[in-house]
């Protein structure tokens, strides 16, 4: 239960960190909040030879408005700061509503927004939110920078499109579409534990009150944050009636293949997918039509 030895660097600027990542490549790990990485190092599941600690880089700690009503979150912004941010509450209400469900207060004081995205835990909320909102990730290396769409960023179990010398420096969330509503619905064994399943919905209505666009995602159901395209297709163009939402939620069970483990069977997770999808879609639809939920 003690981490193996490693060489430690604590750069104070991003440029310095990127140089170190370039120099050390595969053997190096960027240390953000450490709330997953240090736990796995304690278990010796993760054995990096070099740790590049990003915690002294002040320039990656910010929550700022993005053009057109979106939100920019610096990778080293702590969960607790996002939770308290009025700007995040206003511009990314799905993120704001989900923050209290992410781990416990002590973890949120230390864990970071970018770290959770880069870690890509299939049970974590933020990757699934990023897919629901169609956000994007800024990846930087000494070679330059690039933007990666959420749908392309998560490629498998704890796996992302990041190259070994790249780090996540910013996460951008687009503005909420007009006449849209959102919802998060989660079931966990204990408040703050990883979700058995959580559903995230973003739904917008056209001027006739029919569903213009639907994004439904899940965490806890597979190798990464899962998108439910059949559920979205079933609802698109329809009035969000109770029956239409029930059918879309049933379709969502065809979009996922949840694993069974010690916490919950595959069958139970599939059951949760349907129930939580139904709740998330109906709450999002109610919000989109201007109802207080």
């Amino acid at each position: 239960m003690k981490p193996p030895p490693f060489a430690y660097h604590a750069p104070t600027t991003l440029d310095e960190a990127l140089q170190l990542m370039a120099e050390h490549g595969y053997g190096a790990k960027a240390l953000a909040g450490g709330q997953s990485l240090i736990a796995t190092m304690n278990f010796r599941l993760s054995i990096p030879s070099v740790l590049i600690d990003l915690n002294r880089i002040r320039e990656l700690d910010y929550i700022e408005p993005a053009a057109g009503g979106g939100l920019r979150v610096g990778a080293m912004t702590r969960h607790a700061q996002v939770e308290k941010s009025e700007l995040a509450a206003e511009r990314a209400p799905l993120v704001h509503d989900t923050m209290p469900l992410i781990a416990h207060p002590q973890i949120r004081n230390r864990g970071t927004f970018g770290g959770s995205i880069a870690h890509a835990d299939p049970a974590a909320e933020l990757p699934a939110i990023l897919r629901a909102l169609q956000g994007r990730v800024k990846a930087q290396s000494a070679r330059g920078e690039r933007w990666i769409d959420a749908d392309d960023f998560f490629v498998g179990l704890f796996a992302t499109a990041l190259e070994p010398d790249e780090i996540v420096t910013e996460v951008q969330l687009p503005p909420m579409p007009a006449h849209s509503g959102w919802s998060v619905q989660e079931v966990a064994r204990r408040h703050g534990d990883f979700a058995l399943v959580a559903a995230f919905a973003l739904l917008s209505l056209d001027d006739k009150g029919a569903c213009r666009d639907v994004r439904l995602t899940f965490c806890g159901v597979g190798e990464g944050p899962a998108l439910a395209p059949s559920a979205a297709a079933a609802l698109k163009g329809q009035q969000p009636s109770e029956q239409a939402i029930k059918e879309a939620a049933a379709a969502a069970t065809n979009d996922v293949d949840p694993p069974g483990d010690v916490h919950a069977s595959s069958q139970f997770r599939r059951h949760l997918v349907k129930i939580l999808a139904e709740r998330a879609l109906s709450t999002a639809a109610a919000r989109a039509s201007g109802k207080e939920v």
Binding site: Y8, A10, G34, N42, I107, R110
Partner: peptide
């Protein structure tokens, strides 16, 4: 701020 000391390294407390 309340944090878990088992999920930090002593060098980070410098």
């Amino acid at each position: 701020l309340a944090v878990r000391s088992c999920l930090m390294f002593a060098v980070q407390a410098d």
